[in-house]
């Protein structure tokens, strides 16, 4: 076989493997960070710095009873968690990690990402429906409403970037930022996309679909063992995916001086992941109606205004 195939295979397994690995590691990293922010050590007993906590958790998840309730819709119940894993991993395919590193270089990379992130919501809704449980159902309904609302301006907020770069290809968008990161001209777009991204990944403060205080665990109340694990990893995958995408779209991707491009990419992504965790540590969950108002009455107009302004400026600049 030719080298390109080997390179492609290395890219596929490297990027996707790294994504899964990082997501798993993030379960530990997040708890450690939360611990520090709450003046306690966090998980530190298993292995050096508690790193093997991940392994311990994985073993635990694998060996727990894989329980499917009698009243569940069995095939859908099993299918649901796989969707989130699959769609998130597919989303990673279009991320340009560095020059020459990345699974695929798609012309419509951005659209592909949007499509994949929309797919992920099926996982939640189907899981909730199949559980046949009132808490799960409520969680599923919230997830559906939340995703539909926040997806609208998620896409819109990116249009500024697309206009400035003149392409949907993520690699080209990164290259278009050589003169300056889009976070400056597209500050509003960045904010809107980042918030929408949090909502898409059901992270605090937008974790209403699982809201453990009111809905026990929302859509995954009935899930256990590795099925729950898949939801769990899916969530962390989506955190990394959103962070990676923000890096790509607004923070110049792999661009940066002195250090190798991959390191730059990971540094930027890691910083954003930390922001995700910090949000969880600091911001309380809003009420459901507040969430909806915030989405439709503030975020959507902001995204539209941003789009209009960007378009206007671009036209004016010729």
């Amino acid at each position: 076989m030719s080298t390109t195939v080997w390179v492609s295979l290395a890219n596929i397994f490297g990027v996707l493997g790294a994504a899964v690995l990082l997501a798993a590691l993030l379960t530990w990293g997040e708890r450690r960070l939360l611990g520090f922010w709450q003046d306690r050590p966090g998980p530190n007993r298993v292995g050096p710095f508690g790193l093997f906590q991940v392994v311990a958790d994985m073993i635990k998840l694998f060996f727990k009873e894989d329980f499917i309730p009698r009243f569940a819709d069995r095939p859908v119940f099993i299918l649901a968690p796989t969707i989130v894993m699959a769609s998130m991993l597919l989303g990673f395919a279009v991320i340009p990690v560095a020059p020459m590193v990345g699974v695929i270089d798609l012309n419509v990379g951005l659209l592909f990402f949007l499509a994949m992130s929309s797919m992920a919501v099926y996982s939640v809704i189907l899981g909730a429906y199949a559980s046949n449980n009132k808490y799960a159902l409520l969680g599923g309904l919230r997830a559906a409403a939340q995703t539909v609302s926040y997806e609208v301006f998620m896409g819109l907020s990116l249009m500024g970037v697309v206009m400035m770069a003149g392409s949907f290809n993520l690699r080209e968008i990164v290259l278009a930022q050589q003169g300056g990161w889009f976070i400056l001209p597209q500050a509003i777009g960045f904010l809107v996309f980042f918030i929408a991204g949090i909502a898409e990944s059901h992270r605090l403060p937008f974790d209403l679909p699982e809201a453990e205080h009111e809905l026990t665990a929302g859509f995954h109340t009935e899930y256990s063992s590795m099925k729950f694990g898949m939801f769990f990893v899916g969530e962390y995958l989506s955190v990394i995916l959103i962070s990676a995408l923000v890096t790509t779209l607004f923070l110049g991707g792999w661009l940066g001086p002195w250090l190798p491009p991959v390191v730059w990419f990971f540094l930027k992504t890691g910083f954003l992941v930390m922001i995700f965790v910090l949000l969880r540590a600091a911001i309380p969950r809003p009420r459901y109606d507040q969430l909806m108002q915030f989405g439709w009455k503030i975020m959507l107009p902001l995204a539209l205004a941003n789009l209009l302004a960007t378009g206007g400026v671009l036209l004016w600049l010729g």
Binding site: R40, P41, I283
Partner: peptide, 22 residues
């Protein structure tokens, strides 16, 4: 206020742990 609380929480990265390893 949200940003401030994020900053306050972040600062705790550099404070001593209140817990002991019992």
């Amino acid at each position: 206020s949200q940003l401030r609380s994020m900053w306050l929480v972040f600062r705790h990265l550099f404070s001593r742990n209140a817990t002991v390893e019992y």
